[in-house]
Simulated scan of single mutants.
Amino acid sequence: MKLKSLTIAIALAATSASTFAADKEEGFYIGAFGDYYDASWKNMRAQAGLDVNESTGWGVEAGYRFSDYWSARLEYADMDFNAFDKVAGNRNSIDGERYGIDALYHLNGGPFYGLFGIKEMDVVDDNTFLNAGVGYQHFITDGLFVNAETAVYQGLDRGYTDVGAKIGINYLFGQNSAPVEPVKPAPEVVEVAVAPTDSDNDNIADADDKCANTPMTDAVDGTGCTLYEDKEVTVSLLVTFPNNASAVSTQYLNDIEKVSAFLKEYPDTTVLLEGHTSSVGKATYNKWLSKKRADAVAEQLVSDGIAKDRITTVGLGEERLKNDANTKAANAENRRVEAHIKTIKNVKVLR
C-alpha cells in the first residue's frame, strides 16, 4: 500500500508540474534522492528463516545528458530494509546497498522519460537485477531540477520481482540546447510592372518604335511606322463647244487647271483627250473638227505647264455620240472633248 500511494503521488506530481517543464538541456549533472524499495525476498537465510521486505533510504547519482532525447547515469543507494526473522520471531533492520547504471530516453525531448538499466544489490548476499521504469523531471531554474520515478526490478539470481520509487533533486552543469531556428523562406520578389515609354502615343514602346513622332491621326504597324494603303484617284474633264467651233470657252479654264494640277501631282500619269462632234455634217469634216477641238484643249494644258509628250489627242468625229437623238440639245451635248485620268495613290491609313 505504501508503494501504491507513493506511485500515485509521483504520477499526480508529474501531471500537475508538466506545464512548468524547463527547456531541454545538455551536460553533466549530479543529484541526491530519497528511495523506497518494496522487496519480496523469502528465506534469504534458509537456516534462519529470514524474510526481507520494504526499504527506505537515500542515494546519490551522476549522469550526462547527451542530447534532447538521451541521457545516462550512475546510481548508488544506501538502503535500510525491514526484515523478519521467523526463527526468533522478531523484526529488525538490515543495511543494504544498490548501485548500477541506467539509460534514460526523454519522450519527444520533453520532461517525461523511460529508463532501463542493471543494478547490483548487496543485502545479506549479492543479487543482480534488471530494471525498467518511467519518470518525470522538472527544471526549477536553468540548472536545478527535481525528478520522480518508479521502476520494476527483475532478479537474475533468484527470480525476485520488486518495485521501487524515488524522488530526487539534481543540478545540471550544462547549457540550454540551442533551439533550431526555422528556416525562413526567402521574401517573395514582387515584380512591379513599369509601363514602357511611348513618346508619340502610338501604342508602340519607344524601344520598338522605328518611326518616332508619327502623327496621332495615323494608324501604325508593329514597328510604329505609318500604315499606307493603295487608293485609286481619278479626275475627269468635259469641255463642250458651239456648232462648228473649236475654241475653248473661258468657262472651262478652271476645269482644265484641275486636270493640270492632277497631272503635276502624279507626274507618272498621262492624259488622252478625245474630241467628238454631233452627227450634223459630213463625217470626214467632223473627224477633222473633233481632232482640232482635242488639240485646243491640249494647248491649254501645255500653257499650264504640262509636257506635250504626256498628252495624246484623238478625233473621233461622230463615232461615239453621247446622245443619238436628232435634236439641238442632243447635238450640243455631242460637241465635246472628254478626258478620264486615273492612277493609284499610296495614302495613309487613319486611326
Rank of each mutant, 00 (worst) to 15 (best):
V235C: 02
G117V: 02
S236V: 13
R73H: 10
A32G: 10
Y113S: 01
D162R: 08
A193E: 00
D198F: 02
L50G: 00
T197H: 11
G224Y: 02
L3D: 10
G281K: 05
A17H: 09
V163K: 15
K328L: 12
G117W: 04
G114C: 10
I30G: 11
D162I: 07
A205I: 09
I306M: 14
L156W: 05
K258L: 07
A46H: 14
W70G: 04
V314C: 06
T234F: 08
L156H: 03
T217Q: 13
A186I: 06
L316N: 05
A77Y: 02
R310M: 13
V280K: 14
H276D: 05
T150D: 01
L263E: 02
V190H: 13
Y266S: 03
A11M: 10
T141S: 07
V280Q: 09
A339S: 14
T19E: 14
H276W: 03
Y285M: 02
S5M: 13
N43G: 02
L316E: 08
I10N: 06
D208A: 13
D142Y: 02
V349T: 12
T240F: 06
L237F: 03
T161D: 15
K210H: 15
K184Q: 10
V271T: 00
D202K: 06
K287T: 08
D85N: 12
